[in-house]
């Protein structure tokens, strides 16, 4: 019985190196099809622009950020490659989770902290990551991973800055994780 449990646990997730090769092939396909890599934060920006445009159209006519966005991305921000790709991510994640029996509504957190604390930190982390992804012109997917695949200097800088900072700060947030 114990042996069986162990085997089940081992096969819980894909072998990370195999997962990496598959992810690399997805990224290669993106470049082959569209001439661009993968991304995530760009789709959020599209959604934010579309939302603000709906709620306060007069504001987007004036504010510099939305004007620059319209000039570089066109008028309909939701009809973008990254928006469709991120819709796919939600479907793909759900399919994998369903096949592996991982669909479950829950707040995942260390038993040493409350779920309230986990959610508070998730919100703060999200705000910082959202802001930083705009300042850094892309997140872990669009700038670091896709940038590295095309050997871009910016991609390697993003990767080093993101992971380096998280490592440097890990000590201060250890209670949340270990």
């Amino acid at each position: 019985m114990a042996k069986k449990e162990q085997t089940v646990k081992k096969t819980k997730y894909l072998n990370p190196y195999l997962g990496g090769v598959l992810l690399g092939l997805v990224l290669l396909a993106a470049n082959y099809v569209s001439g661009r890599g993968l991304g995530a934060s760009g789709a959020i920006k599209s959604a934010v622009v579309a939302a603000v445009k709906t709620v306060a159209p007069a504001h987007t006519e004036k504010a510099v950020f939305y004007q620059e966005y319209a000039n570089s991305h066109g008028e309909n921000s939701m009809k973008s490659w990254l928006v469709f790709e991120m819709l796919g991510v939600v479907v793909g994640g759900f399919l994998s989770g369903a096949l592996a029996g991982r669909l479950k509504v829950k707040v995942e957190h260390s038993p040493k902290i409350t779920s309230k604390r986990r959610l508070a930190f998730a919100l703060m982390g999200g705000i910082l990551f959202g802001f930083g992804s705009q300042l850094g012109r892309g997140c872990t997917s669009g700038s670091a991973l896709s940038g590295m695949a095309v050997i871009s200097l910016g991609g390697f800088i993003s990767m080093a800055a993101i992971f380096g900072t998280a490592f440097a700060l890990a000590y201060f947030f250890r209670k949340n994780w270990i």
Binding site: K106, G125, G136, A161
Partner: peptide
């Protein structure tokens, strides 16, 4: 931007792409 994202990563435990993936299987 990378430094701010790194701080967000260690506090929030996700990056944008992975958070959508996790939300799709029910992680609040």
């Amino acid at each position: 931007g990378g430094v701010i994202m790194g701080a967000g990563f260690i506090m929030g435990g996700f990056c944008p792409g992975t958070s959508f993936c996790a939300a799709s299987i029910g992680k609040l």
